[in-house]
Design a protein around this nucleic acid. Structure first.
Length: 306
DNA sequence: AACTAGACCAACCGCGAGTAC
DNA sequence: CGTACTCGCGGTTGGTCTAGT
């Protein structure tokens, strides 16, 4: 039998013996043990040597996404959400690249977050997740709000960390200079690059980017875009040139009211939450976020009606 | 209690790039 | 140089859980 034939036969045998679907505890044990003694890599032969009836691919995925000791589990924090949104605006669906900036998070986890949470909100707003409208909503509404919430929480979180010593592992934080960066809470030092600066508690500019940011979504474009004549006594959100929505009306008026109220609710919650556990601290965002998005959806639909 | 819809997430698949032979 | 293999990435699927009816 020639080399091709042997390879084909081996592949057929592999196919016949292969196991798919959820991993058992025994398989996990075998894989973890094998990697502990022999290291990772050469996944196909690793699978055979470890006595696993799995493809190399499957072993690699299981190790990277689940068994690796530094995999961080649990809810995506506010800081991580902010990072994901920002990095996605930079790089798009480059999940593995984005994951590099979120220690312990896998590309799969981030991808799942994006598809379930972010795309859900796009659906609620009745617009495409890749549309400029939704990108702007994220950039000018959602992200500033996240920053606000992070800042609000940071004081409480900081005291929590100082008392417990190891409340979290690593994440992205905002500093007193309005910078935000990846941070190792356990060792109390910065472990990543400085990612950007907040302006007026509202906007974020990214620095040190090795990849050009799309000029269309650059804030300077937003500011430089000709504004409607202020003398025009227009009511409600106004369409700017180049299809920019003017969200300032939303920020200043209706939204602020609901926003402040939801913040009040949130602040009422946070003392209680912080005193209970750090895990819960990051969980409270979801209902608040959903509430906020309901408001956005209404406003957004009003915009389109206008 | 039974059913349904939606959310979540682990796992699979296909493809392209890199590497070994 | 061509082929097979490996690896990693992004897209997709399907199982499980939960909330609502």
């Amino acid at each position: 039998m020639d080399e091709k034939g042997r390879s084909f036969k081996n592949n057929m045998e592999d196919e016949m013996d292969l196991k798919r679907g959820p991993w058992t505890a025994e398989e996990d044990f075998k894989l973890t043990n094998y990697i502990a003694t022999h290291g990772e890599g050469r996944w196909n032969s690793l699978s055979r040597c470890a006595g696993l009836q799995r493809t190399g691919k499957s072993c690699r995925l299981r190790w990277l996404n689940y068994l690796r000791p530094d995999v961080r589990r649990g809810n995506i924090t506010l800081e991580e959400q902010l990072l994901i949104l920002e990095l996605h605006s930079r790089w798009g669906n480059r999940w593995s690249k984005i994951a590099q900036y979120l220690p312990g998070r896998t590309d799969n986890e981030i991808k799942n977050y994006w598809r379930t949470r972010v795309q859900k909100h796009a659906k609620q707003l009745k617009c495409d997740v890749n549309s400029q409208q939704f990108k702007d909503t994220m950039k000018y509404m959602w992200m500033p709000r996240l920053v606000e919430r992070i800042q609000s929480a940071s004081a409480s979180a900081a005291s929590l960390i100082s008392t417990t010593g190891s409340a979290t592992t690593s994440s992205c934080i905002t500093t007193s200079n309005n910078e935000f960066m990846t941070y190792d809470y356990n060792n109390n030092n910065s472990i990543g690059e400085r990612l950007g600066v907040m302006n007026n508690n509202n906007y974020i500019t990214l620095e040190n980017s090795s990849v050009a940011v799309s000029p269309v979504s650059d804030l300077t474009d937003y500011y430089n875009a000709p504004k409607p004549n202020p003398d025009q006594n227009l009511v409600g959100p106004q369409m700017l040139p180049d299809n920019y929505f003017d969200y300032s009306g939303l920020l200043d008026e209706d939204l602020t009211a609901t926003h402040e109220q939801s913040n009040l609710d949130w602040f009422e919650n946070i003392d209680e939450v912080v005193s209970s556990s750090s895990e819960s601290l990051w969980n409270i965002g979801e209902s608040d976020e959903d509430f906020w998005f309901c408001q956005q959806q209404q406003q957004f639909n009003n915009n389109n009606d206008f």
